[in-house]
Computed example of a mutant assay.
Amino acid sequence: MADSAMDLLLERAKSDEQNAQLALVAAQQELEGYRRQLEQIEQYRFDYCKQMTARGQQGLSASNYGHLNRFIVQLDETLAKQRQAATSFEQKVEDCRIYWHDCREKYRALEWLCEKRKNEEKKRAEKIEQKQMDEFATLSYFRQLQKKSNLA
């Protein structure tokens, strides 16, 4: 494969790795935002329960109590759905992590291959240069011998 093709593959792999890393960071931020939202709902529920308890100590009608209780049940249902959604967010982060890791490994493998090819090309060039120098030295030696034999 030509060096330009390898360089193009290497550039593409690096770009894929960077994009995968950005996707991973975005998924992690999305998960953290979700967790903060979940904590806020839990805190709201806790505060609402405290408020209901305080009102209950002051005296609540059965109707008001039923209304407040239904709202807490709705909050509990919302929290249950949110917790189930956590699996989806966490799976997205894990999928992004795996994809990023795969892209990184592909990039590293191509980088290693390019480096290996460059080293092999350098060795070939050094052998050719050494061979040319040997030939030059041999030719030079024979020319000197020829000059000495022509002078003698």
Score class of each variant (00 low, 15 high):
Ser15Asn: 13
Gln84Lys: 02
Asp102Tyr: 06
Lys106Ile: 05
Gly59Glu: 10
Tyr65Gly: 02
Asp134Tyr: 11
Leu24Pro: 00
Ser61Thr: 01
Cys96Val: 03
Ser149Glu: 15
Ala13Trp: 01
Gln28Phe: 04
Gly59Thr: 01
Ala62Asp: 07
Glu17Phe: 07
Gln43Asn: 04
Asp47Asn: 06
Phe71Val: 13
Gln29Trp: 08
Ser15Asp: 08
Glu129Asp: 12
Arg117Cys: 05
Lys148Asp: 02
Leu24His: 02
Val25Ser: 06
Ala20Lys: 11
Glu32Pro: 04
Phe136Cys: 09
Tyr65Met: 06
Met133Thr: 05
Leu38Gly: 00
Leu75Gln: 00
Leu139Cys: 09
Cys103Lys: 03
Gln21Asp: 08
Gln146Ile: 09
Gln43Ile: 05
Glu90Gly: 01
Gln51Asn: 09
His67Trp: 14
Ser15Met: 12
Phe46Tyr: 13
Arg55Val: 06
Val25Leu: 06
Gly59Phe: 01
Gln91Tyr: 04
Leu8Thr: 08
Glu94Pro: 04
Arg12Phe: 13
Gly56Thr: 02
Gln37Gly: 07
Leu60Ser: 01
Ala62Pro: 10
Gln144Ala: 09
Ala80Leu: 01
Lys148Leu: 14
Thr53Arg: 15
Ser63Asn: 12
Arg143Cys: 07
Leu75His: 00
His67Ile: 14
Phe89Tyr: 13
Gln58Asp: 12
Cys114Gly: 08
Glu94Val: 05
Asn119Tyr: 09
Gln74Phe: 08
Arg104His: 11
Glu39Lys: 09
Gly56Val: 02
Met6Gly: 03
Tyr34Met: 07
Phe46Thr: 13
Gln130Asn: 10
Gln132Glu: 15
Met52Tyr: 05
Lys123Phe: 10
Glu30Asn: 02
Leu113Tyr: 12
Lys148Asn: 09
Gln28His: 03
Leu10His: 02
Ala80Gly: 02
Gln40Cys: 08
Glu135Ser: 04
Met1Gly: 11
Met133Glu: 09
Phe142Lys: 15
Lys148Thr: 07
Lys50Thr: 08
Ala125Gly: 03
Leu68Thr: 01
Ser61Gln: 02
Glu94Gln: 07
Gly33Ser: 10
Gln91Asn: 07
Leu139Gln: 15
Gly59Asn: 00
Gln82Leu: 15
Ala62Trp: 08
Gly59Ser: 00
Lys81Phe: 02
Ala80Glu: 00
Ser149Phe: 15
Lys122Ser: 13
Gln130Arg: 14
Ala5Asp: 01
Gln28Ala: 01
Leu113Gly: 05
Gln84Trp: 07
Ala109Ile: 05
Glu121Cys: 04
Tyr141Trp: 10
Tyr141Arg: 14
Leu110Arg: 01
Leu38Asn: 00
Ala2His: 13
Gln84Gly: 11
Ala109Thr: 05
Tyr48Ala: 03
Asp7Asn: 06
His67Arg: 12
Arg55Asp: 07
Cys114Ala: 11
Arg12Ser: 13
Ala86Pro: 06
Met133Val: 06
Lys127His: 11
Arg70Ala: 11
Glu111Met: 04
Gln74Arg: 00
Arg117Glu: 09
Lys148Trp: 09
Met133Pro: 07
Gln82Pro: 09
Glu90Ser: 03
Lys118His: 11
Leu60Met: 02
Arg108Pro: 09
Gly59Leu: 00
Gln18Met: 13
Gly56Phe: 05
Ile72Ser: 01
Ala26Leu: 05
